[in-house]
């Protein structure tokens, strides 16, 4: 570093002159600081706007000031979509085996137990059916805070069974993706979940039952390369990261920085891989209207 300062001593000692405080003691004393009780206020991760928690909930965790979509999980999405938050969860008790006895710095089984304790979830997807504005819908929703929303046997199996339910009851299927991709600790078992879920979707397609795929931040890897991209209608939340390869891998491969907005929802709409972007506040209305047009009114 070669900074041209008049007095070099400033660099070693008190810092350059423009950097010095003109008066000292502006620290706020602890007793004068105003504490913010947990759970009353939420701060937007992007624009730092603070709003009462109850407003965040009413807004479905979308910032009222800048429109930033805070990451939420299956619990919130079920609440957003299902009428009166009434739904029936299926296969809620499926949890992971350890077919490969996989161990890196910790055994895979330990990681699963830790994730289960931390999140209160069994794995990275929950599947439930209920009504959306009076119309039946089967929803599979991923949870990112369970090992990065990664897809192993449980995720694949629960999605496959949810599609089976849609086939058996002739009810539309909706997938809410949020995942870093396949779960490495189940290696090829994870990989084959891509084939399994896609094959089930082929059956749903042949049966003429609607499949709506919602991609949320982030959706990458094997999830993008299987069920997430296979919707009759593919939609996404604003500014979600969506791609096959992760940005870091691409950057390393091509050896330069990625263009701004690369792999965002908006980028994918421009390139023709998404039908539209939906604000979370509009999600239920848009999906139920679409289903009403393409499906529900024909069923009676």
């Amino acid at each position: 570093m070669n900074l041209d300062f008049e007095d070099d001593d400033d660099l070693a000692g008190n810092g350059p002159k423009w950097y010095q405080r003109t008066w000292s003691g502006i620290l706020t004393k602890t007793k004068d600081k105003k504490p913010t009780p947990d759970g009353l206020w939420e701060k937007c991760k992007r624009c730092k706007e603070v709003a009462p928690t109850k407003d965040w909930i009413v807004n479905h965790y979308v910032c009222g000031a800048c429109g930033y979509h805070e990451r939420v999980g299956s619990m919130e999405y079920f609440d957003i979509l299902f009428d009166d938050n009434e739904f029936t969860e299926i296969n809620a008790n499926l949890s992971s085996g350890d077919p490969l006895k996989f161990t890196d710095s910790a055994p895979y089984t330990d990681r699963v137990v830790v994730a289960q304790r931390k999140t209160g979830l069994k794995d990275a997807v929950r599947t439930a059916h209920g009504k959306i504005n009076g119309q039946p819908l089967m929803v599979a929703c991923m949870d990112f805070n369970f090992i990065g929303g990664s897809m192993g046997s449980v995720v694949g199996e629960k999605i496959a069974r949810a599609i089976d339910y849609s086939l058996a009851t002739r009810s539309p299927f909706m997938m809410i993706s949020k995942s870093g991709g396949a779960r490495m600790m189940e290696a090829a078992f994870s990989l084959m979940q891509m084939a399994k879920t896609s094959a089930k979707l082929a059956l749903l397609d042949r049966a003429g039952i609607p499949y709506i795929s919602l991609l949320t931040n982030p959706t990458t890897g094997g999830v993008t390369a299987s069920f997430a991209m296979l919707g009759d209608v593919n939609i996404a939340e604003p500014e979600a990261l969506i791609g096959f390869a992760g940005p870091r891998v691409i950057r390393e491969t091509i050896g330069r920085d990625l263009p701004k907005g690369f792999q965002s929802s908006e980028f994918l709409v421009e390139h023709g891989f998404l039908d539209f972007i939906v604000n979370r506040k509009e999600l239920k209305k848009k999906v139920s209207t679409l289903l009403q047009i393409i499906w529900s009114q024909k069923q009676n």
Partner: peptide, 16 residues
């Protein structure tokens, strides 16, 4: 894993 591959929908192509 390239820029063009993403633009032209690598994930969609494999999924399909």
């Amino acid at each position: 894993p390239g820029l063009e591959a993403e633009e032209r929908g690598q994930g969609e192509a494999i999924a399909r």
